[in-house]
Design a protein around this nucleic acid. Structure first.
Lengths: 216, 216
DNA sequence: GTCTATATAGCGATAGAC
DNA sequence: GTCTATCGCTATATAGAC
């Protein structure tokens, strides 16, 4: 006969989820800050405030916990950029808004850490890198392609290869500064410098794809 | 009294350099393939065909050996791209040649491995990342700036910010494909696809910085 | 279901023989 | 100058008490 009533000492099912979430939060923090090899299961357990075996009871092994942490981070980082091209609004201002949002995103500490981890671990686990790519960059590229196609159809831009152009736009926003940030050499552009960079990129991009006077 | 003549069994000084080179070669291979944490001193000693203590006698510790290996790799990878803008040759063809060379370089297995290691270790050791950046990317950027300044002065292009434009050119050549390669998601562009990519980028770049009909 | 204590293995770095 | 054998430490993963 099982005893149903042990509120103070009984473990209970509800506690399960709270600890699982604490473990996942700790894993996200430590894995991104110190990498896969640099984060021990002991450290994650301590950060989460539980014992190491509790970690193993919720996630079978280190790799499983790592994948879960990366997946959670991907989902919470996917930004809400606006890719709509309403009537009467210039393509310049739309690209400016997208550029600002994307630039802020990829220069954030969390994004840089996630990218570092993906470079290190993703190259060893194709499933992981594919999961990350489809959850993040792929989404943005697809929406940008849609936007550029509409701008081309509306005659605001003249783009033969929308896929390539979308790729170019994001690469330009990233710029060499983001690469330096990734290898830990230099500080992120902020404030006026960041705004200037985005404006320069948008101006250069639009100039390259401006329709000729005769049309497209 | 020291014995001077022991040709067959005596260790001798000349052997020193050969073993040092073997150690350095092994370190370059393993560190780039498996990363810093993934390469044990035992494995490097075995790959070099020497004992572990011999490794420690030539390089004080693991970090020192790692820095030496990275430095050697940087120097041997610095490409010989042509940044000269001779009279009578169009800026398009010069940029095409540079673009092809740079594209081949950054898509090579060795370059990708070096970049991965720098993302992982460089972010933990600012001295290392700075050494890498100044030995590699910085060089190319400086030469490209010189070239673009000359093209601007010659009226072939119209560039207000040559530093920013040089940065843009290399980012465009890299493209999203190089990022996917870095995270282990996708294969490098090769052959006709690579050539097409370089041509598209150069055409887009030149279009953006073409002088207006009235001049610059 | 959770924790303390431990098994097993691999790492970087070193001591002593030749 | 070079090698074999080893120390000290930390990691992942697990066994038994409550």
């Amino acid at each position: 006969m099982p005893n149903k009533l042990l509120p103070p000492s009984g473990p209970g099912r509800p506690k399960d989820l709270a600890k699982r979430q604490a473990i996942l939060d700790a894993a996200k923090t430590l894995f991104l800050r110190n990498g896969y090899d640099g984060s021990s299961m002991d450290a994650i357990a301590a950060e989460a405030g539980v014992s190491k075996l509790t970690v193993y009871s919720h996630f079978t092994d280190k790799e499983t916990l790592f994948s879960a942490a990366v997946k959670a981070k991907c989902e919470e980082q996917l930004p809400e950029l606006f890719f709509e091209l309403a009537d009467g609004v210039s393509i310049d201002s739309v690209l400016l808004n997208i550029g600002r949002g994307f630039h802020t995103l990829i220069n954030s500490r969390e994004s840089v850490e996630l990218h570092r981890v993906m470079v290190t671990q993703g190259s060893q686990d194709p499933k992981l890198s594919r999961m990350f790519y489809e959850a993040g960059p792929q989404q943005l590229l697809s929406e940008m392609e849609r936007l550029l196609s509409k701008a081309d159809a509306a005659g605001q831009l003249c783009i033969a290869d929308v896929h390539g152009a979308a790729d170019q736009f994001f690469c330009l926003i990233k710029g060499g500064a983001n690469f330096r940030l990734l290898i830990g050499c230099g500080e992120p552009l902020e404030g006026a410098a960041a705004e200037q960079h985005v404006q320069d990129v948008v101006a250069m991009f639009v100039r390259a794809y401006l329709p000729a006077q005769g049309g497209c």
